[in-house]
């Protein structure tokens, strides 16, 4: 377990969080390579089926990144994301998945460094939880 490297799938929105991630690069902030990023148009467009599919296919954690509440490019997409996320998290807990395995975070253009720190924090958290036991 000592050298366990968690696999994290990150869905990030095309707007604030995209720019936030970009500014992490511009600012030279580094973060662990455990995060695999997938761009979507809006955090509200990430279907729970897709998140569950990620866990099924071997993700140890999933993080959804969107614009801060009130700042959604599509006005209320991130509220949709928030509602789904809370219900999905509650359901996943009944499946035995710790709630830390699914995260929803708001990242703005000014939060490049915070984003990098966040990835480090999530990676450490998942390292502590260990790999998601797959069912065969």
């Amino acid at each position: 377990m000592d050298n366990f490297e968690p696999k994290i799938i990150g869905f990030y929105c095309n707007w604030s969080s995209q720019m936030g991630i970009d500014s992490a690069g511009v600012e030279g902030a580094s973060y662990p390579p455990n995060l695999r990023l997938i761009r979507v148009m809006c955090s509200g467009s990430v279907d729970p089926e897709v998140i569950i599919e990620a866990f099924k296919k071997g993700a140890d954690g999933v993080v959804i990144l969107g614009c801060h509440l009130g700042n959604c490019h599509y006005r209320n997409g991130n509220y949709n994301a928030l509602r789904r996320y809370r219900l999905l998290q509650k359901t996943l807990e009944q499946f035995g998945l710790e709630k830390e395995r699914l995260r929803l975070e708001w990242v703005s253009v000014a939060e490049g460094k915070r984003f990098a720190g966040l990835v480090g924090e999530i990676t450490e958290e998942l390292r502590r939880l260990g790999p998601l036991r797959q069912f065969s």
């Binding site: 279907d47 729970p48 599919e53 949709n80 509602r83 789904r84 359901t91």
Partner: peptide, 14 residues
């Protein structure tokens, strides 16, 4: 629909 439960919880939250 591959996962009925995921579909339903998506509908409920919306």
């Amino acid at each position: 629909v591959t996962d009925q439960g995921a579909k339903m919880l998506s509908a409920v939250s919306s």
